[in-house]
């Protein structure tokens, strides 16, 4: 009987001690904000385009942390979906709005002859990448443009184009080697046969 009492008391004492310890730790080492939101935010492309339906990337990150779908970021493409799936340990689902190959990167370009200087695009730009003043010609700071195309819609004279980013010697990169151009002979034969069948 005594043993049981001692055991119960000992366990109670331990439980109390660890409970106090945990309680103190949770107060002392409290984490400000939700760390997962920062991690998600760092994966998102930060175009601040709002195509996900949220006003910017961080709001979408918060929404994902609260259980929203991870496939709402067209600028990030499938790779972002996969990265998010990896981070959150969920199933990688196809990009919302159909499977799309890697999105072509674009930057806004203002046809400066046609610009009337209305400043509407300046107000729309989430990253302050458009330079200009009222009734003065505007221009895009290409290095700052995220290609979100939020400036295209407000332009009253439609003088903004989204041009694909030109590849220069510095931005050129190797492509993935085409695997199995010529496979082993039996496979090759199979391919030929298939082609013949199609024809």
């Amino acid at each position: 009987m005594d043993y049981i009492l001692i055991a119960v008391l000992a366990l109670l004492g331990l439980a109390l001690a660890f409970g106090l310890l945990l309680g103190f730790a949770s107060v002392r080492f409290r984490v400000e904000g939700n760390p997962i939101v920062d991690q998600i935010d760092s994966i998102l492309p930060q175009t601040q385009c709002g195509q996900c339906g949220y006003p910017g990337c961080r709001p979408y990150a918060e929404a994902i942390a609260n259980g929203d779908a991870i496939n709402k970021c067209p600028p990030g493409g499938q790779s972002t979906v996969e990265a998010l799936a990896d981070l959150l340990d969920v199933e990688a689902i196809p990009l919302d709005g159909g499977v799309e190959e890697e999105p072509i990167k674009t930057v806004a370009y203002i046809r400066e002859d046609e610009c009337i200087g209305c400043t509407k695009c300046i107000q729309a730009c989430p990253v302050d990448a458009i330079l200009g003043a009222a009734k003065q010609m505007h221009t895009v700071i290409v290095s700052e443009c995220t290609g979100c195309d939020l400036c295209v819609e407000p332009c009253p004279v439609d003088c903004i184009d989204m041009l694909p980013v030109e590849t220069t010697l510095n931005t050129w990169k190797w492509d993935m080697p085409k695997p199995g151009v010529q496979l082993i002979v039996t496979d090759l034969r199979g391919e030929v046969a298939e082609e013949g069948a199609v024809q």
Binding site: V127, A129, K173, P177
Partner: peptide, 25 residues
């Protein structure tokens, strides 16, 4: 390897650009 390096470099530059964009935003 060159392909993988290029991809990683691009990813890193994208990340830098994204961070930059976030700061600006």
């Amino acid at each position: 390897y060159r392909f993988a390096k290029a991809e990683i470099r691009e990813e890193e530059s994208e990340q830098r650009k994204a961070d930059h964009a976030r700061q600006r935003f």
